[in-house]
Design a protein around this nucleic acid. Structure first.
Ligand code: MN
Ligand code: MN
Ligand code: ZN
Ligand code: ZN
Lengths: 136, 136
DNA sequence: GTTTAAATCGTAATGATTATCAATTAACTT
DNA sequence: AAGTTAATTGATAATCATTACGATTTAAAC
């Protein structure tokens, strides 16, 4: 997904177009990896020295909510990345050094034959952690 | 695993037997669910009004390190549970209301045929979240 | 250009986790 | 049983991510 597509999606949902949002989206579009909130803040401060953490988190959560970003918890911090829209539901290998990801086109839920009768499944997480070829 | 077995394991590793450790282990042995650090603190304060958070965390991490406990991140907080030693490597359904778990005797890594050549896999996480029959 | 609700900023509060260090204690030695 | 010592704990403060909030600004609709 590119920045304009994302901003279009936001417009349709009634969100305003702001310079800060554009900038946040640019950061994510550029890199295929999970990024922590403080890294986003740091990056944005180049253009907007006075950005508030409130602005960062509010937007990250909002963008996750409208499925533009994906979130996960890495090393006790929330990390975000641009959602993959080139294919369907899938999972990721995540490099514990640089945060780059590789898609895993396999969902273990499809293979679950455990008896989960009586259980209400709301969500699931399958992530593989390690070193990518560049960091290995 | 029971408290005495766990304490024996600690002894073999050179850790001392303390009342606080016994108490922490008792809590975990009693319940088949993920518990947050602050809940452990609260529980232990009944017997040791002055326990320090340092004692709680140090022990939880140490017990995880020697494979007596398992840890995971739930809702932004570290949670711990007694490791399952009745069967081999497996995963869990986790109730998002009460923290109780159900073993899932299936590991998606066994079914991974993705090409991960050049990637160094260190770890993986597969968890299913939802409501258990009691909380449903 | 006016209006208005959304968004941002500046700043403070919260809450979990980590760190420090003096005092205590379990386990070993004599 | 008393002495020794390193591990452990308690009291407390620091750190760090995240959340909260009122005042100000701004995007976008009219
Ligand atoms: Mn992907
Ligand atoms: Mn289990
Ligand atoms: Zn990498
Ligand atoms: Zn439950």
């Amino acid at each position: 997904m590119n920045v304009e597509t994302a901003l279009q999606k936001l417009k349709e949902k009634g969100y305003k177009r702001t310079k800060q949002r554009e900038r946040i989206l640019e950061i994510f579009v550029k890199q295929d990896q999970y990024i922590a909130a403080k890294e986003i803040l740091k990056e944005i401060q180049n253009d907007f020295p006075g950005v508030s953490y409130d602005t960062i988190y509010r937007n990250l959560y909002m963008l996750t909510d409208v499925d533009i970003l994906e979130a996960t918890e890495l090393g006790g911090e929330k990390h975000f990345r641009l959602g993959c829209d080139t294919h369907g539901h899938h999972h990721h290998f995540i490099c514990t050094t640089c945060g780059k990801t590789k898609s895993i086109e396999f969902c273990p839920m499809d293979s679950i034959n455990e008896n989960l009768n009586g259980y209400d499944v709301e969500n699931h997480k399958f992530e593989i952690y390690g070193k990518c070829p560049q960091c290995h």
